[in-house]
Structures are given as structure tokens and as C-alpha cells.
């Protein structure tokens, strides 16, 4: 368990690092947040407006003071005011979060189910041509830009079949289609990794043994090879979730869903730094949490790994 505590500490460092990196990137490197707000203003007002804004945002103070304030604020859940919405950035973020969470979770579920099924079916397919066809699917899936997949689905399901509304469908259908768009790339990458691992696992000596015990192809693939092949996929779940979170940005834009992804794009466009800072920090938190969960579950899957002993 001591080792797990270490992981926890390590996770905290990662989140802190992400926050710090993002803070310096957003507040120190370029102009500053005030510039974003005054971008629209003309002429002589700008200077004055800028100074006023800087003072308001506390940007005229030394960097380390700003950083310290931001850090202590963040620890209390205060990432500053959203420049546009004029209310706490965290609130803005949290409001949009459920929308994105259901999309990402459903997308992840679909990606795992589709990816694993495809890989197993590939290994169980005897016909050479069918197999070749199936094998070509995962690389194609990862080569499809998520926004393009979204547009195609939108064209088909909204404009051809009229199953969903083209703009911001709040129903189950809309959610489902959007999560399919999200799941294609993730499922493709899961399947790609899993297919490669399965192939490697299937050449292992223990598979040779199982085959000589008279096991069927299905038993060999599902009972003996799949679990071994799936371990690296489980390990990379944190990254897959990251891909999902990133993917929501595009999917939400295409399907005009008002989630975190859209919020971030708007924030980036408007240089609404506090919101971007929240988004980066929470993404890191999600990654760390997913990895902690995976770490905790891993010894159950692979008895060779143990926390103690």
C-alpha cells in the first residue's frame, strides 16, 4: 500500500505540473489575458482599457505573486473569473461537464466494445479475404479525422435519414450518433494495439501448449491469448481517455453540443485564460485518476504484479 501512496503523491505532482505549466504558458509567455479582452476595442481607448483590465486581473503584480495567488486559489477551487462570462471559471466549466462526461463515457464504452470485438473477430476469421478486409479497418479508423466522421454521420443521420436534429440534438439519438463519431478513432487505436498484441500472444509457447491440448480456436483466442494481449491496452487506458477528452472538442463542435469541448474552443478563441487553465488542470486530474484506478485494478488482472511483497 505504501507503493500506492507513492503513486498518489506522484499523481498530485503531475496535476501540479500541468497547472504550473499551463499557468506560465497562458499568463506569462505571450501578451496577457487582458489583451484578449481588449482585442475588439479601437484606438486610444485600448491603452487605457488594457491598463484597467490588467489591474483588475492583477496582472501588474510580479509573476511569482501572481503564481502563488493562482496556486492557492486553485487549491480552493478558485481559478479566477471567466473573462467573458464574468463568473468563476470553475463554475462555467463544471456546468458543461455532465454533457461531455456522458458523451465521453459512452464513446469510451463503444470504443472498447468495438475495438475488442473487432480484434477477436479478426483472429477467428478463417476466410482469407474477409480477414484481410477486417484487418484493414483499424488503420483506416485511426486515419479518419474525428470531425470528418462526425460530418459524415451528421449528413447521413440528420439530413438523409432525419433520425436526429442537425443542430444540438438533446435526445438519446443525438448522443448516440455523437458518441459513435467519438468512438471511431479510439476503437481503431484500441483494436490496432490489441490486434498486434493478440498476434504476438498467439505465437507464444503457452499458446502452442494450449493448441496441443486440443483447445478450439475460440478458446485459444478468448481464454488464453486475449487476457495477455489486453494488459497493455488496459495500461494505456489513461491515454485512451485523453484521446476521448480531446475528441469531444471536435465532436461537440460538429454536433453543436454545449459541452466542455466547445467551451474550451470558445475560450481559446477569446483567450479566456482562466477557463483554459481549468480545462488543462481538470484534464490532468482525469488522467491521473484513471491511471490510479488502472494501477489499483492491474494486480487483479496480472498476479505477477503485486503491491506488497
Amino acid at each position: 500500500m505504501a507503493r500506492y501512496g507513492l503513486r498518489l503523491l506522484y499523481g498530485v505532482i503531475v496535476v501540479w505540473g500541468a497547472f504550473t505549466g499551463a499557468f506560465f504558458l497562458l499568463y506569462v509567455v505571450p501578451g496577457d489575458a487582458a489583451g484578449g479582452l481588449t482585442a475588439g476595442a479601437d484606438g486610444g481607448d485600448v491603452k487605457h482599457l488594457l491598463a484597467e483590465q490588467r489591474e483588475l486581473l492583477g496582472l501588474d503584480r510580479p509573476v511569482y505573486v501572481q503564481y502563488w495567488d493562482a496556486l492557492t486559489g486553485a487549491l480552493h477551487g478558485d481559478f479566477g473569473q471567466s473573462i467573458y462570462q464574468r463568473r468563476p471559471a470553475v463554475d462555467v466549466y463544471v456546468e458543461s461537464f455532465p454533457e461531455t462526461l456522458q458523451l465521453a463515457l459512452l464513446g469510451l464504452l463503444l470504443a472498447v466494445v468495438l475495438g475488442v470485438t473487432l480484434s477477436v473477430v479478426i483472429e477467428l476469421t478463417h476466410w482469407k479475404w474477409a480477414r484481410e478486409l477486417l484487418i484493414s479497418l483499424p488503420p483506416i479508423a485511426v486515419s479518419l479525422p474525428p470531425f470528418l466522421v462526425g460530418l459524415v454521420l451528421l449528413q447521413v443521420f440528420a439530413f438523409q435519414l432525419h433520425w436526429i436534429d442537425a443542430v444540438s440534438d438533446r435526445g438519446l439519438g443525438g448522443l448516440l450518433v455523437a458518441s459513435v463519431a467519438l468512438a471511431v478513432a479510439g476503437g481503431g487505436s484500441i483494436s490496432q494495439l490489441l490486434t498486434a498484441n493478440l498476434r504476438a500472444a498467439l505465437t507464444s509457447p503457452y499458446i502452442e501448449t494450449a493448441r496441443n491440448w486440443g483447445l478450439s480456436r475460440f478458446d485459444i483466442v478468448v481464454r488464453h491469448a486475449l487476457k495477455n494481449a489486453a494488459l497493455p491496452v488496459v495500461t494505456s487506458l489513461g491515454t485512451t481517455v485523453g484521446v476521448m477528452v480531446g475528441g469531444t472538442v471536435l465532436t461537440e463542435t460538429v454536433f453543436s453540443r454545449l459541452g466542455v469541448g466547445r467551451l474550451v474552443v470558445d475560450a481559446v478563441n477569446g483567450r479566456d485564460m482562466p477557463v483554459v487553465l481549468v480545462a488543462v488542470t481538470i484534464s490532468a486530474v482525469i488522467f491521473v485518476v484513471v491511471n490510479l484506478v488502472v494501477d489499483a485494478l492491474y494486480p487483479l488482472l496480472d498476479k505477477r504484479i503485486r503491491w506488497e511483497g
Binding site: P205, Y206, E208, T209, N212, H224, K303, R304
Partner: peptide
């Protein structure tokens, strides 16, 4: 027909 492989450690599935 029974079969005994070369490397016994590798010949068994590590996860079962």
C-alpha cells in the same frame, strides 16, 4: 496425443 513443450515456464499461460 499428449505434448510437452521445451521451456516449461514459457509453456504455461502466465495469467491462469
Amino acid at each position: 496425443i499428449g505434448y510437452i513443450p521445451q521451456d516449461a515456464r514459457l509453456g504455461l499461460n502466465p495469467l491462469l
